Simulated assay, not measured.
Amino acid sequence: MTSLRHNAAEEPASPRDGYLDAARDCILDLGWRRTTLTEVARRAGVSRMTIYRTWSDMRQLLADLMTREWTEVVLATEAEDDPSRPPVERLVDKLVRTVLVLRGNELFVRIVELDPELVLPYLFDRRGRSQELILGLVEQALRTAQASGDVRPGDPAAMARGLVLCAHGFVLSAHTMIDDDVTESALEQEMRVVLTRALQP
């Protein structure tokens, strides 16, 4: 699955977006290790110094690229929300759809396949900006649903973090649990059951 905003007909929203688009293309074509700021500048059609004035190294650029990519996934899922559905069903559906879109995202797949160490800091050392966004959205949804009695009592901040930790496993490790005995769709259904029962009063 391609990025939700990137296709051949779409123009970058700003020069910075154009530079990030060029970096994204580089990583998809070459992988992280072979991508340099010089190559990003070449593909973006600008001088090397133009890129260096924005990012001092590739790790800073990658952090901004991943934040933009994952934030788009999350916000697109939010935009598809149907407020007429029950709160728990809505929240579980958004979490599951976010997991599935991330697992199919071509940049995410490329990074995990070639350079999985790039995601390790966000699993072992610190939360990233897109993770903070997800936590904030989930926590607010939980507070609203608790106020209406649709979600069990509890600390919404801790509950949000528990849900996101659960989702991490389905994003990063689901493929290790799919085989002739358990299909991807069966695993997706189990994820829905786990998340739903974690929220029900």
Results as ranks from 00 to 15, higher is better:
residue 45 G to W: 12
residue 65 L to E: 04
residue 148 S to Y: 01
residue 89 E to W: 00
residue 23 A to N: 04
residue 22 A to C: 07
residue 99 V to S: 13
residue 102 L to H: 05
residue 89 E to S: 01
residue 154 G to T: 07
residue 27 I to A: 01
residue 101 V to G: 02
residue 145 A to Y: 00
residue 30 L to W: 09
residue 58 M to Q: 09
residue 41 A to H: 01
residue 80 E to D: 14
residue 28 L to V: 09
residue 54 T to V: 15
residue 148 S to C: 06
residue 145 A to K: 04
residue 28 L to Q: 05
residue 39 E to R: 11
residue 107 L to Y: 03
residue 133 L to M: 10
residue 67 T to V: 08
residue 33 R to I: 03
residue 157 A to N: 11
residue 55 W to I: 08
residue 111 I to F: 10
residue 48 R to S: 12
residue 98 T to A: 13
residue 124 F to G: 08
residue 34 R to T: 08
residue 156 P to T: 13
residue 47 S to W: 04
residue 120 L to G: 06
residue 33 R to C: 01
residue 135 L to P: 00
residue 59 R to V: 08
residue 51 I to N: 02
residue 141 A to D: 15
residue 94 K to W: 02
residue 75 L to I: 13
residue 83 P to H: 01
residue 73 V to E: 02
residue 138 V to C: 03
residue 112 V to T: 15
residue 104 G to W: 03
residue 113 E to G: 06
residue 146 Q to W: 11
residue 44 A to P: 04
residue 57 D to S: 09
residue 78 E to M: 13
residue 89 E to Y: 00
residue 56 S to G: 15
residue 75 L to F: 07
residue 68 R to T: 08
residue 37 L to D: 03
residue 124 F to Y: 15
residue 94 K to S: 14
residue 52 Y to A: 04
residue 73 V to A: 05
residue 117 E to R: 13
residue 97 R to W: 00
residue 114 L to Y: 07
residue 148 S to L: 09
residue 152 R to S: 10
residue 74 V to H: 02
residue 111 I to S: 04
residue 116 P to V: 04
residue 32 W to M: 10
residue 90 R to S: 07
residue 108 F to K: 15
residue 102 L to Q: 14
residue 106 E to N: 14
residue 72 E to L: 13
residue 151 V to F: 09
residue 86 P to G: 07
residue 56 S to R: 15
residue 91 L to K: 02
residue 129 R to I: 04
residue 84 S to F: 00
residue 123 L to P: 03
residue 43 R to D: 09
residue 103 R to C: 03
residue 77 T to K: 00
residue 130 S to W: 15
residue 64 D to T: 13
residue 34 R to K: 13
residue 48 R to G: 02
residue 48 R to L: 05
residue 155 D to E: 07
residue 44 A to H: 10
residue 150 D to R: 15
residue 37 L to H: 01
residue 135 L to Q: 09
residue 122 Y to H: 12
residue 145 A to F: 00
residue 143 R to Y: 02
residue 137 L to K: 06
residue 65 L to N: 10
residue 142 L to M: 04
residue 144 T to D: 12
residue 144 T to Q: 12
residue 39 E to D: 12
residue 125 D to Q: 12
residue 94 K to N: 13
residue 68 R to H: 06
residue 105 N to M: 13
residue 46 V to P: 07
residue 24 R to L: 14
residue 22 A to M: 10
residue 35 T to L: 00
residue 107 L to V: 14
residue 103 R to D: 01
residue 155 D to I: 03
residue 32 W to S: 06
